[in-house]
Each structure stands twice: as structure tokens, then as C-alpha cells.
């Protein structure tokens, strides 16, 4: 059973506001109304397809691959087998840089399954260098210090250059997570 909502009130992560009123508890549901429960067991294995399979192979080799439409000239990544605007196959493959520009981002103090986070996740849309402007690539921003909104805002801004930080080659699995995150490019990128 899920923890009652009162556990939330103990959290002191920056964005939390105290909840008003009295949270409902499990006790109030159980025994007072008839319910029936079911835990779904749903399992899928999706065929990635021609374009995404090649893209994932590229990530395993440390490369970001894209495709160019021969009709509209757009270069996009993640690649797709056809241009959704021109409805023609997209098969002019290009290797792109692993540097990009931030389009937008959010500082998230909650995980995908709603667990509070002290150190936030920063999902972002970045525009990979070499792709057509406004062709976004969804990933995470990392390599920033601090956890408060103020601290992170000082280090990130829309339009800022970022660079991919990769997993070590032997750890890569041919997945989008082979890139750990994108980090801000320092003024002097020598390491």
C-alpha cells in the first residue's frame, strides 16, 4: 500500500508548500466502501525499426546520427525513416557533433513516479549542432552545482552551449541513456 500523504509534509525540498486541510488516509478507504483491486501485468517488446535501430547503434559507438530530408532539407535527430512533413523516405544519414544549444529546460524536484527529489533532475530540449534550428533533442542537463532554483538558474540559460557526457564505451547498451547528460560548455573546454 502507498504511504499515506502525511509523509509528504515532512519533506523540506525547496518547492514544497505546506498542504492545507487533512489528507485522506488508507484507513478511510478500507472497510468503508467496497472495492476490488487488480495489478496489471503488461509487458511489451517494441520493434525499434530501421531508423531508430541505426541511431541506437550509433550511440553505442559514441556517435549522434541524424538524417536529412532531400525534399525540405531539414536535418533531424533522433532520425526517422520518413519526413513527417514531406512524406518521403529520409535516408541521407549524417554524423552530428555531440555539442548542442539549450532550447528549454525545467528544474524538476520530483521523479517520474512522483518521489520528491532534493537534488533536482533537469530535463531539457537541446538543439544538436548540425541539425536544423528548432529540431529538438530531449535529454537531461547535468554537471551543474547546487540544488536550489537560484543556484541552478545562475548556471543555466536558454541558448547556452552544452556538450554530451557519455557513458564509458564498455557500459553503453545502444540506448538513449548511453549519453549520461549534457553539461554546460566551459569557456575553456580543455580538461
Amino acid at each position: 500500500m502507498a504511504k499515506p500523504a502525511r509523509a509528504v509534509r515532512k519533506m523540506d525540498a525547496p518547492p514544497w508548500l505546506a498542504l492545507r486541510g487533512s489528507p485522506l488516509s488508507d484507513d478511510e478507504f478500507h472497510g468503508k466502501v467496497s472495492t476490488t483491486s487488480w495489478i496489471p501485468r503488461l509487458e511489451y517488446g517494441w520493434d525499434a525499426g530501421i531508423a531508430i535501430s541505426r541511431f541506437l547503434e550509433g550511440l553505442k559507438a559514441g556517435k549522434i546520427l541524424g538524417v536529412r530530408c532531400r525534399v525540405c532539407g531539414r536535418t533531424v535527430t533522433p532520425p526517422r525513416a520518413f519526413c513527417e512533413l514531406d512524406f518521403r523516405p529520409m535516408d541521407d544519414w549524417v554524423e552530428l557533433a555531440d555539442t548542442a544549444t539549450i532550447n528549454t529546460y525545467s528544474i524538476c524536484y520530483v521523479t517520474w513516479d512522483l518521489k520528491p527529489l532534493r537534488k533536482p533532475q533537469i530535463p531539457a530540449v537541446v538543439e544538436i549542432d548540425g541539425t536544423t534550428p528548432r529540431v529538438g533533442f530531449l535529454h537531461l542537463i547535468g554537471g551543474v552545482n547546487g540544488s536550489s532554483v537560484e543556484a541552478i538558474r545562475k548556471q543555466l540559460r536558454v541558448g547556452m552551449p552544452v556538450r554530451a557526457v557519455w557513458k564509458k564505451p564498455h557500459q553503453r547498451a545502444g540506448a538513449i541513456t548511453d549519453i549520461l547528460y549534457f553539461e554546460p560548455v566551459k569557456r575553456h573546454p580543455e580538461r
Partner: peptide
């Protein structure tokens, strides 16, 4: 089985034929 294509690619192919 249709391991070689995604559902999107399979539909694109059918749509192209229909058009």
C-alpha cells in the same frame, strides 16, 4: 513477426501504397 520495422515504418509503407 515484423522485427525489421517499427509500427510507424510499417504504417508509412501502407500509407504510401494507399496514396
Amino acid at each position: 513477426l515484423s522485427r525489421d520495422v517499427s509500427y510507424r515504418e510499417m504504417i508509412f509503407d501502407a500509407a504510401t501504397r494507399a496514396h
